[in-house]
Amino acid sequence: MNYLKFTQYVYLLFAAFFLYDGVTKLMNPALGSPWLSFIITAVAIFMFFFRRKFSKKFDDRNKNS
Rank of each mutant, 00 (worst) to 15 (best):
17 F>V: 05
39 I>L: 13
34 P>N: 09
38 F>I: 00
4 L>S: 15
19 L>N: 09
4 L>R: 15
13 L>M: 13
33 S>D: 15
24 T>A: 15
18 F>W: 14
12 L>V: 02
5 K>M: 09
40 I>K: 04
40 I>V: 14
28 N>T: 12
8 Q>C: 04
33 S>E: 14
34 P>L: 01
31 L>R: 11
11 Y>L: 02
34 P>C: 05
37 S>E: 11
43 V>M: 03
43 V>K: 01
6 F>N: 07
21 D>T: 06
18 F>E: 11
42 A>L: 11
13 L>S: 13
18 F>C: 06
33 S>Y: 11
14 F>Y: 10
4 L>Y: 15
41 T>H: 06
9 Y>L: 03
12 L>N: 07
40 I>W: 01
15 A>H: 01
7 T>C: 09
28 N>S: 12
23 V>L: 13
40 I>G: 03
15 A>Y: 01
10 V>F: 14
9 Y>I: 00
10 V>K: 09
41 T>R: 03
41 T>V: 05
3 Y>N: 04
5 K>H: 14
14 F>N: 09
40 I>N: 01
16 A>R: 08
10 V>Y: 14
30 A>K: 13
19 L>E: 10
5 K>Q: 13
26 L>F: 08
42 A>M: 10
21 D>A: 13
19 L>Y: 12
43 V>Y: 02
14 F>C: 06
20 Y>M: 04
5 K>Y: 14
